[in-house]
Design a protein around this nucleic acid. Structure first.
Length: 483
RNA sequence: GGCGCGGUACCCAAGAGGCCAAAGGGGGAGGUCUGCAAAACCUCUAAUCGUGGGUUCGACUCCCACCCGCGCCUCCA
């Protein structure tokens, strides 16, 4: 297998990947702010980081990933207060929803899921350290990071701050800062607002603090990967670098990877714009988790992805094609065609397809290219099966490759309809049991044998209404599947 | 204005000097198979790869200019 390269935001270039510690990958992912349900724009980024960690794991790396859950910020404090709930109570609900969404989209669980409010003391300790070594200062009850002490500031976002003169006392908002660029590490306690009593005094953490704190705590001073959406490059990640490196004196992150935005009608999907869909919105319209995941994963992460329902339906068709193929392979393997034992003529082609699949992913997770390799093989094998030139041995190998494909894309497994039904989104009532379907299939076969096609078609129609699709195969047997 | 990502067929999208008279998916048209379907397969569906210059033996791919979309520069995946 070839070298893996990633586009590193810090250098602005593609760089070959080698982990800091051989065989061991440490990655941090900016998770959701749990003041509401996450929307599919958010999940675009989460699917991307999931593909990344799955790919790395498939390559044999041990992955240790931390994802934060931001359960304290201005909105949460306001919303919780408005709802007459505690912060914890208020955010619990959205955390549960987020975890459920993760499961539905087949997002692997990070090794550590870290809740900000569980780390207040750790954050205070980090701030105390920054106060001690002169990178932070107190002003009007709040504590700020002193950018002037950190010359590399702006390296990630490539922003030029020379226009803003350091040292001048600038009045921004209601805060008193020494320098307009300085950002809040710790916000003063205001009457009536939620606060924590800590070694650095009462108050609440600034936005950026939690990520630095939890990353350093669980992963050490230097991480291999830090992922998030492009909108986090500035100021969030820039500030994380400042805080972390000021505290440790060591490079914080080796590879910064940022996912481009999901657009809707050509505009960024966002809560504030109101142009967003949650997973639940899409489920309610009958769309499936596998199609959503496929859509989000199929466009390489560094490209903006314009979300449309047409696109979602196209993704569903693609998944269907792959699932049909998998079903066909399983049959081919069982059937053991009895063809003259010609070994496994497709073996070289499968190896080749897999190499192309891997090469796509190695190139900065080019999922579109990886998928092309898969679909090419699908077509070739389908053709061979049609011609009766496909051996059982090949089916096993193809199925194994498909398994490796799905270890990354995770769209073949699971019963979408069951999932939706369990959540109360599926249209039809109780699913038909396998035995019942089999009985009706038998009934239909008898009808067909006496050439009573009217009765046969009626049964097929009835089953279709219950979400069962029948396929008459050449050998007279019937394959069926649930839609 | 600064920084960044884009503009490739009806839709999504790969490719980034010759292997491209441009992958793959979806859709559409025709056909094969079938009692009918479904699935699958076959054929067709890009001759300005945003526009105009330039470099080169050769450019979708490099350079310059311009036009258009999106994002960040304030909370945001």
């Amino acid at each position: 297998m070839g070298e893996i390269v990633f586009q590193n935001t810090l250098s602005g270039r593609k760089e070959a990947f080698t982990p800091l510690h051989a065989g061991d990958v440490r990655m941090y992912t900016c998770g959701p702010t749990v003041y509401d349900f996450a929307h599919i724009g958010n999940f675009r980024t989460f699917v991307f980081q999931d593909v990344l960690r799955r790919f790395l794991r498939a390559r044999g790396f041990r992955v240790r990933q931390v994802m934060n859950l931001t359960d304290v910020d201005d909105r949460i404090i306001q919303n919780a207060a408005a709802a007459g709930a505690g912060i914890r109570e208020y955010t619990d609900r959205y955390i549960q929803a987020f975890l459920e969404d993760m499961r539905l989209l087949h997002l692997e669980m990070p090794e550590t899921l870290a809740r900000a409010t569980d780390h207040i003391d750790d954050m205070a300790a980090l701030v105390a350290q920054l106060l001690e070594n002169g990178f932070a200062y107190r002003s009007d009850g709040s504590i700020y990071f002193r950018i002037a002490r950190f010359p590399c500031y702006g390296a990630l976002s490539k922003m030029d701050f020379s226009g803003i003169q350091a040292g001048a006392r600038v009045d921004v908002d209601r805060y008193e800062k020494d320098d307009a660029r300085d950002f809040a590490l710790w916000k003063e306690h205001k009457p009536g607002e939620h606060f924590w009593e800590t070694r650095i005094g009462p108050g609440r953490p600034g936005w950026h603090l939690e990520c630095s704190t939890m990353a350093l705590k669980y992963l050490g001073p230097t991480l291999d990967f830090h992922t998030g959406g492009v909108d986090l490059v500035f100021p969030h990640h820039e500030n994380e670098i400042a805080q972390s490196e000021a505290a440790t004196g060591q490079p914080f992150v080796r590879y910064w990877l940022h996912a481009e935005h999901l657009l809707v009608n050509g505009e960024k999907m966002s809560k504030s714009a109101g142009n967003f869909y949650t997973l639940r919105d899409l489920f309610a319209r009958g769309h499936r988790p596998s199609a959503i995941r496929f859509l989000l994963a199929s466009v390489p992460y560094r490209r903006q992805l314009n979300f449309t329902f047409e696109g979602l339906e196209q993704a569903a068709s693609s998944v269907e094609r792959l699932r049909n193929f998998a079903a066909r392979l399983r049959e081919a393997r069982l059937a053991d065609s009895g063809a003259p034992d010609s070994g496994a003529p497709f073996a070289p082609r499968i190896v080749e397809a897999e190499a192309r699949f891997e090469a796509g992913l190695e190139d900065d997770l080019n999922t579109a290219q990886a998928l092309a390799a898969v679909f090419d093989l699908v077509r070739e094998i389908n053709t061979a099966i049609d011609r009766g030139e496909f051996a059982a041995a090949d089916a096993a190998a193809a199925l194994a490759f498909l398994g490796r494909f799905d270890a990354i894309f995770a769209v073949l497994g699971g019963d979408d309809l069951e999932t939706l039904r369990a959540l109360g989104y599926a249209e039809s009532g109780a699913p038909l049991a396998d035995d019942d379907v089999a009985a009706r299939v038998r009934e239909r076969r008898e009808a067909r044998q006496r050439r009573d096609f009217e009765a046969a078609d009626r049964i097929r129609r009835e089953l279709a209404e219950r979400g069962i699709i029948l396929e008459d195969l050449k050998d007279g047997t019937v394959r069926w599947k649930r839609t």
